[in-house]
Amino acid sequence: MDKFVALTASGIAYGAVLAVVALGFLVLYKATGVVNFAHGDLVTLGAYLAVWTTTSLGLPTVPGYLAAIALMGLVGVAIERVAYAPLRSRPPMVVVIATLAAAIVIRGIIAVWQGSEPKTLAGPVGNRVVHIAGAAIAEQRLLITGVAAVAVLALLFVFQRTPYGRQVRALAADPEMARLTGVRTRLVAMGAFALSAMLAALAGILIAPLGAVDLNFGFGLMVTAFAAAVLGGFGSLGGVVLGALVIGLIQQLFGGYVLPDYAATFPAIVLFLVIAVRPEGLLNLTRSRL
């Protein structure tokens, strides 16, 4: 029983981080049509910025985190201006390749700025644990789940209840038409890049205290989150959150009980199966896009 509880708790925490990464990915895709392969490196950059604000600038943990997230919003806008705006009218494939280039540039900048040695990010709760049904669960994991849940709800609110969300939903449904009805595409794109980068930073900051930050930190997370997004139908926010939780739980439970050596490959296998068998996503229950 305690084993099941422990594995479930870690699966949910991992899924929660995946959900934040996947939503950042999706927000940008919905608003601009860009599949941003630099998203993983934005996760890395966010974590490094948090290391920088809390160690070099000496800010306390939580204000340091918030400063890093705010900075990442500016980074998002800068990327929109420098890398996306000039390519706006180019075919999507060109833009996707540009995002790969952006990923390499971001990684190179981090390497020059912070060096190649892994860094550690202090968590607000340290190494404390709570015991639930006999299982020891790190408080950081509970924190991750809580913060991610708040972030997801806030995002749902922004999309369902604000004029910004209304415009993103219109752009996602029909970009050409949106332009004719006066949706401010440039403003929406800038906002989406900022929001996406901030979500990337949040995910990086949540998970970094569990391990360490190095140059490849965010990339693997992005690939797994991509699998979660595809599983969720690459459409509805709710579907993507469910997809992320399913991937997190499969990886931990299947990895804990059945085939431990192959746990790391499950997301890729799921991705492959979903694309091959049900490209519209397993969990695309509603037609609602956002």
């Binding site: 922004v158 604000t162 910004y164 209304r166 009805t181 006066g182 401010r184 906002g191």
Partner: peptide
């Protein structure tokens, strides 16, 4: 997929605070 009201709101002539700062 949007409500009728949302459809109409998209073309509003009042363009202030439509972005993320408004959100």
């Amino acid at each position: 997929e949007l409500s009728c009201l949302d459809n109409v709101l998209l073309s509003t002539s009042d363009r202030r605070l439509l972005g993320l700062t408004g959100a």
